[in-house]
Amino acid sequence: MRLVIAFLILAVLLVLPLLAPRFENHQPLVEYRQERGVSLVASDSGTTRYQTWGDWKKARKPVVVLIHSFNGYLETWEPNVDALVREGYRVVAYDLFGRGLSDRPLKPHTLDLFREQLVALRSTLNIDGPMHLVGASFGCVIATDYALHHPEQVKSLSLTGPAGFPDEKNAAQELAKKPFLGEYIFYYAGKPLLLSKLNSYLLNLEDNPWAKAYWKVYDSYPGVKRAALSTLRYSPVLDYTEGWRRLGKTEIPVQFIWGRQDSSFPYYHRRVVEKLIPQAEVVAIDSAEHWVNVDQPRETHQAITDFLRGIR
């Protein structure tokens, strides 16, 4: 009898990760958004939360679009927004699918999916001219992919703490691709895994307690772990080499801003940038981890605005 019970428990533990997505309750997320009156845009795959700053009635400079990291949310740009607005830019940031207060679609999280978000956002906000895209980590990959597909809509790329540089010691993506194993790992250990990564993004997380506070709120809604696994499986989070190579064959102005202490995608990957993207400007910032724009917001802002001022 004990053997039968043990077998049944094991069977449930093995099957649960595969069935869980069908039973996700997203109504609390919908209600949370409604209570706070957040700005939303709809596309074929779901609803995206976004926020704008600056004077959108008087078009002066191009719009700056901020695209957060793999494990982030739009508030990670708060240390940088005011400075960009003072420079006269209209600014918009949004939550990627599966993150923050955006929907968690039950479909592969490919670059096509993330491109769809930006297309819908651009249409909703009636952005008719070229945009400056500013990415963080995986947001750099999304920004570059969008620029490669819509070069006429992108004026420049500013890529902070960029992802997409393979490292032999990082086997996470290969592990995630394995059938069932990835579901099992992320279902039972996804939250501590993602939280441990968050803890490594800043040199001193205690200096920015809001970073973890926001994350814990958004992680409490179903679908975050599933979206993270799907993104690792279907998007080039850890290896965007081919995309960087294609970017190097364009004339799109691009800069990379790297924290010298970045442990997620270390600064030594600048050698790949120098080789594949000859037009790229590389800026190194001291005392900064992966979220360089949060660790050193003033230096990051200065680098971005200096770069933007030089673009005609």
Rank of each mutant, 00 (worst) to 15 (best):
L8H: 00
L8M: 06
A11V: 11
V15I: 15
V15N: 07
P17C: 10
L18F: 13
A20S: 12
R22H: 11
E24A: 13
E24I: 02
Q27L: 12
P28F: 05
L29C: 09
V30G: 01
Y32N: 09
E35L: 14
G37S: 11
G46V: 03
T48I: 13
Y50P: 01
K61M: 05
P62G: 13
V63R: 03
V64G: 05
I67V: 15
H68W: 09
S69T: 06
F70Y: 15
W77Y: 00
V81D: 02
L84D: 08
V85H: 09
G88P: 10
V92E: 05
D95Y: 00
F97T: 04
L101P: 02
D103A: 05
D103S: 12
D103E: 01
P105F: 10
P105L: 12
K107E: 15
H109N: 04
T110K: 03
L111S: 06
E116T: 08
L121D: 09
N126P: 04
P130I: 14
S137D: 14
F138P: 00
F138Y: 09
C140K: 00
I142P: 01
A147I: 06
H149L: 13
P151D: 13
E152Y: 01
Q153R: 10
K155R: 15
L157A: 06
D167F: 00
A176F: 04
K177N: 12
K177Y: 06
K177H: 10
L181Y: 08
E183N: 15
I185S: 03
I185P: 00
F186H: 05
F186G: 00
A189W: 11
A189Y: 13
G190K: 02
G190P: 00
L193Y: 14
L202V: 03
L205Q: 13
L205E: 12
L205M: 15
E206L: 10
D219I: 01
S220Y: 12
P222K: 04
R226I: 01
A227H: 11
Y234L: 12
S235W: 10
S235H: 10
D239A: 14
L247M: 09
I252Y: 01
V254T: 07
F256K: 06
W258S: 00
P266I: 01
V273E: 03
K275Q: 13
L276Q: 06
L276T: 03
A280K: 06
A280Y: 01
E281V: 06
V282D: 03
V283E: 11
V283P: 02
D286Y: 11
S287C: 01
H290S: 07
V294W: 02
P297C: 06
E299F: 07
I304H: 09
L308P: 03
R309A: 10
